[in-house]
């Protein structure tokens, strides 16, 4: 486990808070996106989170790590946010694609099939596995993920390994079009060349 150091929010001044913000805003936004699927909303939630953190700093005492504290807080506000969203309207996949393409022109350029594949593939998994994969992709260690989700690091490892196995098996049953293969091959080789 991480060493316990008590961080006292009441002692923050604008300078220390800016340092904190600079260190974690990007990570928190990315994590929020994992829930919202909307870049703008994710950044909004993250900014609001930090603003609230400042407003309530007098009562804040962090006795885990700052990273853990922030991500748990982000998770909570995202859940609240998506609950509210679902009550008013549901986001269709179409909508999501639109949001994606308007914010990242690059993503729009990437073939629609690869985006579809991505959606289909990872959406085959249950929400817990999906969340763990997202956290892992954000660069967190198994320990850190375990801490956030209140499970053991072993369980995180197990879930990830199972996820990979399930994906391998699931796709076995999927019919692959020639198109799929081509795109996969091209991107696959590109990725292969990356570390060289």
């Amino acid at each position: 486990m991480e060493p316990v150091s008590v961080i006292n929010g009441a002692a923050w001044d604008q300078q220390t808070f800016k340092v904190l913000y600079d260190e974690y805003f990007v990570l928190v936004s990315r994590y929020c996106y994992s829930f919202t699927g909307d870049y703008e909303a994710a950044r909004d939630i993250a900014a609001e989170l930090f603003a609230n953190l400042w407003r309530q700093r007098a009562g804040i005492r962090v006795n885990t790590s700052m990273k853990n504290y922030l991500l748990v807080a982000a998770r909570r506000s995202c859940k609240k946010h998506t609950d509210k969203l679902q009550r008013t309207f549901t986001i269709s996949d179409d909508h999501l694609d639109q949001a994606l393409s308007t914010h990242t022109p690059d993503a729009a350029l990437a073939g629609k099939e690869s985006r579809e594949k991505l959606h289909q593939l990872l959406s085959l998994l249950d929400p817990v596995k999906k969340e763990i994969i997202d956290l892992k992709l954000l660069g967190l260690t198994n320990k850190e993920i375990a801490h956030i989700l209140h499970i053991t690091p072993k369980k995180v490892e197990y879930q990830l390994n199972t996820a990979i196995r399930l994906l391998q098996e699931e796709i076995k049953t999927r019919r692959l079009t020639v198109h799929d293969c081509e795109a996969g091959l091209i991107i696959g080789t590109l990725v292969l060349m990356l570390p060289a």
């Binding site: 990007v26 991505l118 994969i133």
Partner: peptide, 17 residues
Amino acid sequence: DILVALVKRKQQLEGAA
């Protein structure tokens, strides 16, 4: 495909901020 999906997802997450 799995690797591509994971790498794409990583990029997608990183695009957030």
